[in-house]
Amino acid sequence: MRDYRDLREIRARFPKRIEEAAAIRRRRPLIGERDQLMIIAADHPARGALGVSGRPLAMGSRIELLDRLQIALARPGVDGLLATPDIVEDLLLLGVLDDKVVIGSMNRGGLQGAVFEFDDRFTAYDTATIVRMRLDGGKMLCRIALDEPGTAATLEACGAAVSELAGEGLVAMIEPFWSTRAGHDLTPEGVIRAINVGQALGATSARTWLKIPVVEDMERVMRATTLPTLLLGGDPGDTPDLAYAAWRKALRLPGVRGLVVGRALLYPPGDDVAAAVDTAVAMLEVS
């Protein structure tokens, strides 16, 4: 495990190098040689959601997370990263984001377990910074809870962000959930409701992509939208083989444009990050 002494020194003495690294980063088209994308997600820590498969602080070490992210991003077939500014900036300084799609995570204010969890404030990236840092789009979590007043502000803010990103020609990635305090409604009906609300946010959906979980009856779920859709990997728990089988099947459905996976690949059973990433990449369709 590296100690990242140089990274710490740059952050302390030469913070301007972050924007300099962003200015020279080699960008790429959103969709490359394949019709489907493999994006590594790393925005859970900003919500205080650090647990993986029964380990409550698995993602608590930034040093270990950076080690794992660099392994994942270096694997053949990995197209990019979805993360908050702190993680994106570390990886920019480490020089590992050239030729990658980079999506900035925007609303991380609804901290896990907080009384204000459904008031999902935009506390991370905003559109202006996404543009200035030459990222490829912004992602927003949109939990819809009918008994939580904070949902209204979240919907309004997500709609505004979709409009702003589209105005800059950038992807707006929406992760909609029909939710309660007890958790997300992961029935097909719950996901379909969430999709229909999420895809209507903003003044245009021309640049909107969806990020949805893999649930039962995905064929019916995918009939709810014509938007490009990425599958949320989530935490597969103790049954990764079953999760992988479900991903593989869902990836063959019309409109599915790939995977966005974080914890399942960065902290897999046995801790072989490279093997877990390679398994996921192998599921994607070749154009």
Results as ranks from 00 to 15, higher is better:
Pro29Cys: 10
Leu50Ala: 11
Pro213Tyr: 07
Leu253Gln: 05
Ala12Ile: 15
Gly138Ser: 09
Thr180Val: 08
Val221Glu: 00
Leu210Phe: 03
Gly202Gln: 01
Phe122Asn: 09
Ser205Lys: 01
Ala21Asn: 05
Pro29Thr: 09
Ala203Leu: 11
Ala172Lys: 07
Ala194Phe: 03
Asp43Gly: 08
Asp271Val: 06
Ala276His: 02
Leu73Pro: 05
Ile31Ser: 04
Ala23Tyr: 07
Leu69Trp: 04
Arg27Ala: 02
Lys249Ala: 15
Ile195Tyr: 03
Pro149Trp: 04
Leu73Cys: 06
Asn196Arg: 15
Tyr267Gln: 08
Pro268Trp: 13
Met38Trp: 04
Arg2Ala: 15
Ala152Asp: 10
Ile87Arg: 03
Gly80Asn: 03
Glu175Ser: 08
Asp86Ser: 12
Ala46Trp: 02
Leu111Tyr: 08
Glu89Trp: 06
Ala275Val: 07
Gly159Thr: 03
Glu9Asn: 14
Ala194Trp: 02
Pro76Asp: 09
Thr279Arg: 10
Val215Ala: 06
Val115Thr: 15
Leu7Asn: 08
Asp3Phe: 11
Ile63Met: 12
Gly270Ser: 11
His184Met: 12
Ile18Leu: 09
Ala58Cys: 07
Gly138Gln: 05
Gln112Ile: 15
Arg134Ser: 11
Ser163Asp: 12
Asp67Leu: 08
Leu284Gly: 00
Pro29Leu: 05
Leu259Thr: 04
Asp278Thr: 15
Thr208Glu: 00
Trp178His: 08
Arg143Ser: 06
Ala74Cys: 07
Gly190His: 08
Val96Tyr: 00
Glu216Ala: 14
Leu94Glu: 04
Arg17Leu: 14
Thr229His: 00
Leu253Asn: 02
Leu201Pro: 01
Arg132Val: 14
Gly150His: 03
Leu30Ser: 05
Pro188Glu: 00
Asp185Cys: 12
Gly258Phe: 01
Gly258Pro: 07
Arg143Glu: 04
Ala250Cys: 07
Gly198Arg: 05
Ala224Phe: 02
Val281Trp: 05
Leu57Lys: 12
Glu148Met: 12
Asp86Arg: 10
Trp209Ala: 03
Trp178Ser: 04
Val221Met: 02
Val197Arg: 01
Ile192Gln: 07
Trp247Tyr: 15
Glu89His: 10
Ala152Gln: 13
Val101Leu: 13
Leu57Met: 14
Leu73Tyr: 04
Arg5Gly: 09
Leu111Arg: 08
Leu165Ser: 04
Phe14Ala: 13
Leu231Asp: 02
Leu92His: 03
Leu232Pro: 01
Ala12Tyr: 07
Arg17Glu: 10
Met106Thr: 14
Ala203Arg: 08
Ala264Thr: 03
Leu146Asn: 11
Ala250Val: 04
Asp3Trp: 09
Gln70Cys: 09
Leu284Asn: 01
Leu141Gln: 05
Arg34Gly: 13
Ala172Tyr: 04
Val260Asn: 03
Leu266Phe: 10
Ala194Asp: 02
Leu284Asp: 03
Asp126Cys: 15
Ala128Ile: 13
Leu186Ile: 09
Arg108Ile: 10
Arg55Val: 13
Asp99Cys: 00
Leu242Thr: 12
Ala152Met: 13
Thr154Asp: 07
Met38Thr: 04
Leu82Gln: 04
Leu97Lys: 06
Val78Ser: 01
Ala264Phe: 11
Arg62Leu: 11
Ala74Val: 06
Leu65Thr: 09
Asp79Phe: 02
Arg263Lys: 14
Val215Lys: 04
Ala153Val: 11
Gly110Val: 05
Leu82Arg: 01
Ala49His: 05
Glu164His: 09
Leu30Val: 11
Arg2Cys: 12
Ala224Thr: 01
